[in-house]
């Protein structure tokens, strides 16, 4: 089990002044699994992502990523070194594509490091010299692969900003994958998607998990996504982990139900909430 670990978070604590956003959080995410982090608003889910991707330096704790070539401590590097040294890629809750660039260019920019190494500060790129030409061809191949995967091959030359919302979401995921990460962090990828797009997204995420064999970390409010595709669910509330396990176990966990619905003796859930949690009201 341990050799399959992709990310190990140990005693992560993040304080902003007196506010404790994350309090002594430990969990692991495994390779080839989708780990979902859920929790009510303000539970600290995005803060976890911000610690993983170098936006915040954790107050305490250790974040270890087991990449292909050995473990790396995430809290040690920052900024642009995160994707290169650590192999963590991320998408945002509100889409952050380069809207002025084409769909294809968005995917090529994500392969910037490989290209820069081959381009001798762009001079080789300017004259299209051997090594750069080869690296660029490689980058195009990768981009093409992901364009096909997310079904945007036909729109490769569109301005990214002109794509419909659902396609933008998929492009953002494709762009993150072009970084060639060991861990992909998705911040609410299903937000704003209609049921059909959301189903397509499930297929895409599952195929990334199965084909690439990398660990996916998912923040999501849409329980239909979480329950359907995640292999492992972590529930946060006020920065603390309150449940950790497979989706079935978590959704029946009384602590989780309490966190979502508040302290209440009444066991009867309102029907729409039960539907959201995919509980059969009659079964409870």
């Amino acid at each position: 089990m341990t050799d399959n670990v992709q990310l190990e978070v140990e005693h992560l604590t993040m304080r902003f002044g007196g506010l404790v956003a994350i309090d002594d959080l430990s969990f692991t995410a495994r390779k080839g699994e989708i780990t979902a982090i859920i929790g009510p608003n303000g539970a600290g889910k995005t803060t976890v992502f911000n610690c993983l991707t170098g936006f915040y330096v954790p107050t305490e704790g250790r974040l270890t990523l087991y990449a292909n070539d050995g473990p790396r401590l995430l809290e040690r590097s920052e900024g642009f070194r995160i994707p290169r040294n650590n192999g963590v890629a991320r998408t945002f809750q509100n889409i952050r594509l380069f809207t002025g660039m084409t769909v294809l260019e968005n995917l090529i920019v994500a392969q910037h490091n490989a290209l820069m190494e081959a381009s001798a500060f762009s001079l080789a790129g300017l004259f299209n010299l051997g090594r750069y030409a080869k690296a660029e061809k490689q980058a195009l191949e990768t981009a093409k692969f992901w364009l096909n995967k997310v079904g945007l091959y036909e729109q490769a030359d569109w301005n990214a900003g002109n794509l419909p919302y659902g396609s933008q979401r998929r492009l953002e995921i494709a762009r993150a994958m072009c970084v060639n990460p060991s861990l992909l962090c998705l911040d609410e990828p299903a937000a704003g998607l209609n049921p059909r797009e959301s189903a397509e997204l499930n297929v895409l995420l599952q195929s990334i998990r199965d084909d690439q064999g990398i660990g996916l970390l998912l923040i999501e409010h849409d329980m239909s996504v979480v329950m359907k595709i995640s292999d492992h669910v972590i529930v946060l509330d006020y920065g603390k982990k309150i449940a950790d396990g497979d989706p079935e176990a978590v959704k029946n966990d009384p602590a989780v139900i309490r966190a979502y619905l508040g302290e209440d003796d009444d066991d009867e859930l309102p029907p729409e909430v039960a539907a959201d949690l995919h509980l059969d009201p009659k079964a409870t």
Binding site: G79, F80, I82, R90, R96, F98, A110, H112, N113
Partner: peptide, 9 residues
């Protein structure tokens, strides 16, 4: 975002 994609800003 550019930084997150590995661009040395």
């Amino acid at each position: 975002m550019a930084g997150l994609l590995g661009v040395n800003v």
